[in-house]
Structures are given as C-alpha cells and as structure tokens.
C-alpha cells in the first residue's frame, strides 16, 4: 500500500516536470555517451576545457538573453557589445588602470549601451530587433574603425596570470558562469523584479493595468543583458590575452539558439526558464564539441545553428498549438 502511494506521489512529481527538459537531458546524456564511446579523448579534462572555452561566453550571455526574450523582446546588439567592451577594457588596461577597476568601468559602459538600447526602443516605439540591430552595426563598425582592424595586446604579466588561476582546475570564467547561473536560477523563481519580467512578457498591457512600472522592468532587462555581454567582453580579453574587433562574430545567433532550444518562446513572451536555457546551452556546447571531435568542418556550425533555431521554434509552436487545442477542448 505504502509503495503504491509513493509511486503515485512520484508520478505526480514527474507529471509536473516539463517533458521538454526530459527530452533535452536524455539528448545530452545520450550524446555524451555516444561521443564517449567514439573517442576515449571525450571524457578527459582537456576536452572539457576545450568544450567549455568554446562556449562559455555564449553561456553567460544566454542567461541575460533568456530574460530579454521572456520579456517579449530580443537583443542582437550583444555581438557588437562584446568586442566593444573587450576593446574598452583592453585600452583601460594599457593605460595602467587596475584590472578590477578597469573591468568595472567596462561593464558600466556596457550598461550604458543597454540603457541606450532601451531608450531608443521606447522613444522610437519599434521592435527591439531593429534598434539592437542598428546598435550592433554601429558598435561593430566602431570597433573596426577604432582598432583599424588590428588586435590589441601587450598587457602586463600579472594580467596574464589571471587566466592561469584555476581553482579546482576550473577557469575563472567557468566559476563566474556557475555563480551567475546559480543566481539567475534562484532570482528567476524568487525575485520580484525577475518575476515581473514574466508578467510584462506575458501581457504588457495587463501588467500596466495592474499598476506595474513596465518600462522600468524593460529597462532592467536590457541593461542586465548588455551588462552580461560586457562581462563576456571583459572575460574574452582575459582568456585570449588580447582584444579584437572580430570577437563575438555571430555570437547572438548561437545565444538565441541556445535559449530557443531551452524552450523559451521567441514568438510569445512570458514563457521560458533559466534551467531550460542551461540545458540548451549544454546541449549546443556538446554538439559543437562533437563537430570538433568528429573532424567535421566548423563551417557546419552556422548551418546547424540556423537549422536548430528553426526546429526549436517549430517545436515550441507545435507544442503550444497542441496544448491550446487540448485546453479549448477540455473547456468547451
């Protein structure tokens, strides 16, 4: 009897788990096993390092992008912000400003860009896609122009040591990501500001009628996202020990795809989750790693990313349609 009760409770718990995550986890595990079976090299720390370093910036930015997309918007300026902030940070370092202060200033600048994105979006009253696209172009152009296409490097010895500092064998960027992911996981479920983002994305007008400062919420979202892109810029400079206009090319596409794979809807705001994004990020990182391991040309990455984006959107739209149909039938 007790056993049956326990089983019921377990089933009840299982029912509450989104099928989407189950599928993703199963995919992630089976992909790892296949890769592990194919290559002994797969489950080594070195490969883990390669895999992580290839996708850690995307992973960090995907957290902020998730919130932007949940709010019903999009921000593709990140691929302009990342190299811009990397260049700003590098220049500050070269002027002898202490690392931590330089990082703070650089991230502050990225916040200003986020503020500008939101301001333009509000004032011009158009889809954030257009505004952030223009911002991306402007920044990318600016990056090329100010660096004249050359790579900035020549930082102090001390600075280079940061990259070699690996507590428990894991690099600083990964630690930062783990910390951020943890914060986002909790905040997206617990924090008032984060939860308001879901309301604004779900029904902006209703949120306004409920007395919410929706514009304030959106400002927070865009600044937060730009700040994370800025952080990724700072970390890129640290990791590569240089800064270049070519950083972050196409990064917005990979970030958006990771978020979409995680089940956050690009068509309807208000639904999505950080945990889904984390799964989506791990999944994409594994796939890219599988490409590298199997010796498939990295050129396939872009093709694959685009196809994954369409597929993820199609699946989420299909699931939504089926769900809505069943709800309608049930209530009719």
């Amino acid at each position: 009897m007790i056993r049956k009760e326990q089983r019921e409770r377990l089933l009840d718990h299982l029912r509450k788990v989104d099928l989407h995550y189950v599928v993703l986890v199963v995919l992630i595990i089976s992909l790892s096993l296949i890769m592990g079976g194919k290559s002994r090299y797969f489950f080594t720390l070195t490969n883990f390092d390669v895999m992580v370093n290839n996708f850690i910036m995307e992973a960090i930015m995907a957290l902020g992008m998730t919130m932007v997309i949940i709010s019903g918007g999009i921000d593709i300026s990140v691929s302009g912000v990342l190299p811009f902030i990397a260049i700003v940070f590098a220049n500050l370092l070269l002027r002898g400003i202490p690392v931590l202060l330089a990082a703070l200033i650089a991230i502050f600048v990225s916040c200003l860009i986020g503020l500008a994105n939101n301001w333009l979006r509000r004032v011009l009253n158009i889809h954030p896609m257009i505004v952030t696209m223009a911002m991306q172009l402007t920044l990318r152009g600016l990056n090329l122009a100010v660096t004249d296409g050359s790579v900035i490097s020549g930082f102090s010895q001390e600075f280079q040591k940061i990259n070699q500092f690996k507590p428990l064998g894991i690099s600083i960027s990964v630690w930062i990501y783990i910390l951020l992911a943890f914060i986002f996981l909790i905040y997206s479920k617990q924090n008032k500001m984060f939860l308001n983002i879901f309301f604004v994305g779900g029904n902006k007008e209703a949120a306004t009628l409920s007395g919410m400062n929706t514009e304030g919420v959106l400002r927070f979202v865009y600044v937060l996202n730009a700040a994370l892109a800025g952080l990724a810029g700072v970390l890129s400079t640290t990791v590569y020990n240089s800064a270049s206009y070519s950083f972050g090319q196409g990064v917005e596409m990979r970030v958006i795809t990771a978020v979409a794979i995680g089940g956050t809807s690009l068509t309807h705001g208000g639904s999505g989750s950080i945990i889904g994004t984390i799964f989506g990020t791990v999944f994409l990182a594994l796939i890219y790693n599988a490409f590298v391991m199997s010796g498939i040309s990295t050129y396939y990455q872009d093709v694959f990313t685009g196809l994954m984006l369409i597929l993820a959107v199609l699946l989420s739209e299909g699931a939504r349609m089926i769900k809505e149909k069943s709800v309608k039938q049930a209530s009719a």
Binding site: I74, I256, T267, D302, T305, G306, L307, V313
Partner: peptide
C-alpha cells in the same frame, strides 16, 4: 506565424 526576424535570421545563418 514565426516572427519574420527569427525565420530570416535562421535562414541567414544556414
């Protein structure tokens, strides 16, 4: 009913 920018962004990448 996929948003035009999503669809064409994907095609662009592919």
């Amino acid at each position: 009913h996929i948003a035009p920018f999503v669809s064409t962004l994907a095609t662009m990448s592919v």
